[in-house]
Amino acid sequence: MSDSRGLVLVTGVSGFVGSAVARALAAEGWQVRGLVRATSPRANLADFPGELVEGDARDAASMARALTGAGTLFHVAADYRLWAPDPEEIVRNNLNSTGTVMRAAQAAGVGRIVYTSSVATLKPSHDGPVDERHAAAPDEAVGAYKRSKVVAERLVERMVTEEGLPAVIVQPSTPIGPRDVKPTPTGRVIVEAANGKMPAFVDSGLNLVHVDDVAAGHLLALARGRIGERYILGGEDVMLGDMLAEIARQVGRKAPKVRLPRGPLYPLAWANEALCRLTGRSDPFLTLDSLRMSRYRMFFSSAKAEAELGYSARPWQGAIGDAIAWFRQAGMIR
């Protein structure tokens, strides 16, 4: 890259994907500045390869300060929760922060933006893998998180068309791997399964990709992506039962065999959410929206990114292995 020594701002660097993107950029010779909230966890920042600045992506003044001198922006930060006592808070957070960040980047004269969206903005199908042409409308998205990503992505697209925003959009599928500190919902499945706490499962599927391949895809989008275009950064389509069997194999446990019907699980999900509201917990393992989403196999095609960006992803079994190794080191897997 001819401008590899330029200053790049990355939001969300304390998180799973953001920390991977920041490290990938530093490895390519970029001068990295990471935006982090004062309340963000610091586990992924101990060896951060650059400068850290405190700020909030929803605050225009702190965004203006963070963007000072930066010619490139990766907006990776997002409110990634599949459940909240007030679901609309997730929508407000992701829409408002995306608008604030993009307007600040325009005002600062940033020359190139990579916006991290999600395959959550695509309509799932029962007929095989979905590609970028299957864009969802807000009322077609299942749950607040997916709806939040749809409205935020549409905002970025409008700003590209109407205001000349120099943004490329990437849509990661289901990243797994090291530094999943929260962990993400999928990371939590890996932890629970590795600890022998998932004896049964529903018939569903997902697209698994190593987080470092997603990060590499971000850099490819910066270098080769077309402004205003969307690129799925995925890996391999995997049935949930096969994923759990692979986790069991790698940790030396028996694979779960019991496949559960969804119907009886809805009252349990409702009760789980009600308990979280009552106790103030924010992380129910089983939610109504997750059950609704599980009706679809979340399978996706990265053919466009492969053809236009030169993107590729490693086998999903290795990504599972890297995730398990990191969770073990972090003390989450016994």
Rank of each mutant, 00 (worst) to 15 (best):
V91M: 01
S97C: 10
A104R: 06
I90L: 01
V130I: 12
V156M: 11
Y145H: 08
R92T: 10
E153A: 07
A64T: 12
R112D: 14
Y115I: 09
A120V: 00
T161V: 14
K123W: 04
L95G: 03
S117V: 11
R154H: 13
V130R: 06
R133N: 12
T121K: 02
D127G: 10
K123C: 07
A78I: 08
T161W: 04
N94C: 00
A141W: 02
R158P: 01
K149Q: 01
G109D: 08
R154A: 15
Y115W: 08
A108W: 13
S97P: 06
E153I: 09
Q106R: 10
L82F: 13
L82C: 07
T98S: 12
H134S: 15
T100W: 06
E89I: 03
R158V: 09
G143A: 11
V151D: 02
Y80I: 13
D131Q: 05
M102F: 04
E157W: 08
P85W: 00
S118V: 15
S148T: 07
V119D: 11
M102Q: 03
D79A: 14
E89Y: 01
E88A: 15
G143H: 05
R92Q: 14
E132V: 08
D131T: 10
H75I: 11
E89G: 01
Q106P: 00
R92F: 03
R112F: 15
T72M: 13
K146S: 15
P138D: 02
S97L: 10
G109V: 15
V130H: 06
V76Q: 05
R65D: 11
L122C: 06
A84Y: 02
D127N: 15
W83L: 04
Y80H: 09
H75S: 07
A136T: 01
A144N: 04
N94S: 10
R65W: 01
P85Q: 07
R158L: 05
D127C: 07
Q106F: 03
T98F: 04
V114T: 03
L95F: 14
A61M: 06
A108H: 10
T161A: 15
H134M: 11
R81S: 13
S62K: 09
K146Q: 14
K146F: 06
Y115T: 02
D131G: 04
E140W: 00
